[in-house]
Structures are given as structure tokens and as C-alpha cells.
Design a protein around this nucleic acid. Structure first.
Lengths: 144, 144
DNA sequence: ATACATGTAATCAAAGTTGTTACAGGATGA
DNA sequence: TCATCCTGTAACAACTTTGATTACATGTAT
């Protein structure tokens, strides 16, 4: 099991919009950098737009960031592209046997543990902004 | 996307072996508590055995824990049932365009962030043992 | 020998992911 | 107005994973 690459691609999209902010960032342009189909990009742009992270309009080429770089966290992107549902990173088997003490309680016992593990992971994502990502890429590019 | 319920079922299996330690915990018995097929349980028992968490033998009914309850963490179970590969909780799109600064660096920039988020989640799992789970169920049962 | 257990392979349906095609509809300039 | 280029979306196929199921080989004990 792996969390969908929509998350990584979403970060890629937003980062490239920033790098190309003087130009026109169309779905074709993004697709060629990500190396995928433009329709895949447009699907993701729809999610990012719905989440208020970018501005994009039918018929008008190019997407723009709707917020400051430093105000967009990886968690925002993660939620926007809908890769993991609230409290559902881990799945729990349904309908355990209620006639057994373990079957009766296992869900209630396990669920809070799973949720706290999920929250710990998501906490890390809230602590990283797109500004951090852009800066890191800039540094790496200057070194090369 | 969700992490396979093999993890939750693995915890269920180990917990029930403990609760039923005076009796014989066969795959049929486990299956009726989990509410699944005995072959599914046996597949999981194979993984738990391979990881050194239980002892089980062909032809002999019943599984036993191979370690103390307090020495088995949820992380041990998580690794045993193989629900998430090392450093692969998040997937990253392959073959981004190397002619683009973002395409060139995005993988190297994102990967350590993803790994640290994964590790934060896994850290929580290492801090919970099966003993905690068993105690919690015991308490919940006494209250009811 | 029988009865019953584990070990394991093969198969299947359901769901999610990613890529692809197609087309409706908005914006713009000749 | 028309042609062109863009976004927005739906529909579909290929692939993968999950979980259930069936079947059967093999081990153990009476």
C-alpha cells in the first residue's frame, strides 16, 4: 500500500507554478515537467482550485497560486488531493464477533491508537511549507 | 487509500491468542472472532510466525505467542504483516522531466520529507505494546 | 487408517490508481 | 463570426492490491 502520487504531483504542480510565475503555466506545460497526461494535471488542478490553493479559469491559459508560498503547507496539499481520508489512514476489519471479548472491543481499542499515529504523520506535513520546498530546490540547483 | 486491515487483524490475532492462552487457538477459532475465512487467518499466521511473534506448527492445533506481551510492539506487527514498505508510505511520480529545474530536483527534495512523516507515524507504533492493548480491552470489558 | 490441523497455491470480485480519448464550453484575436 | 487554444469533465481501459474462497498437500495423534 502506498499513498497516491497525486500528493507528490500536487506539490510538483504548485512548486512549478511558483518557479514559472513570470510565465504562463498551462496544463500542457505542467504535464511535460511531471511527465504525465495534461488531463491528469487538469484533474489535480481542479482539486487544488477547490481547496483554494490556486486560481485557474476556463478558457484562460495558466494557473496562479492563490496564497503566499509560506502559507501553503504540505498538509494543505495532502488534504486538497484527497489521498487519505480523515482518521482512515489505517483500516480496521468490520464485523468482528460481538460474542468474543476481543471481537467486541478490538475496534474501540485500536482506533485511537491508529488515529494518533496518523496525526503524528500529518503533524510533520503541517510543519513544512511550499516555501521550504522551493528554497530547497533553489539551493540544490545552484550547487549543481 | 488505506493501510490494509491485515495490520488490525494481526493485532486481533495476537490479542486473542493471549486471551485464550489456556485454550487452543486454532485458525478456525480466530476466524470466527475476526469474522473472516480461516485461510486468511492462516496466511497472516504465516507472516506472524516468520516474524518470530508466534509459534505454530503444521498438524498441531493452536498458536502461542513467541514473546512476552510487553515485548511485542504494534510496530512489530505492522512490519510482520507487511502493510507498508520501508520508506514507501508515500509514492512519488517517476520520470519527471530532467530538463526542468523542478522536475530535476522534486524527488530528492520531497523524499526526505515523506520519510520523516512516515517515521513519525511509525514512532507512535513502537511506543504501544500488545500488553497495552490487552489491558485496555480488559478494562473496557470490566466496565461493561 | 481416520480425523483434524496447518501451509499454501490458484482464482475471483471489488476497489483504487493512472493514463488516455473525447468533447463541451469559455476566452480571445483575426 | 469564426478559428483557435485553453480548462473542465466524463468515460473507459490497464494494472495493482485486497480480501474471500476453494482446494489440496502435508503433518500429527489416536
Amino acid at each position: 500500500m502506498s499513498i497516491s502520487s497525486r500528493f507528490a504531483v500536487g506539490i510538483h504542480i504548485l512548486t512549478l507554478i511558483e518557479f514559472n510565475k513570470e510565465g504562463v503555466t498551462s496544463s500542457d506545460f505542467l504535464a511535460s515537467s511531471v511527465n504525465t497526461n495534461p488531463a491528469v494535471i487538469r484533474r489535480l488542478m481542479g482539486m487544488l482550485k477547490k481547496a483554494g490553493l490556486i486560481e485557474v479559469h476556463p478558457g484562460i491559459a495558466g494557473a496562479k497560486l492563490a496564497k503566499e508560498l509560506s502559507e501553503i503547507t504540505l498538509y494543505d496539499v495532502y488534504k486538497a488531493v484527497n489521498v487519505v481520508q480523515e482518521n482512515e489512514l489505517f483500516s480496521i476489519h468490520e464485523n468482528p464477533n460481538p460474542d468474543c471479548p476481543v471481537g467486541r472491543q478490538i475496534q474501540n481499542t485500536i482506533e485511537p491508537l491508529f488515529i494518533s499515529a496518523q496525526l503524528a504523520m500529518e503533524k510533520i506535513l503541517t510543519n513544512v511549507t511550499l516555501e521550504d520546498v522551493v528554497k530547497d530546490i533553489t539551493v540544490k540547483e545552484n550547487i549543481c
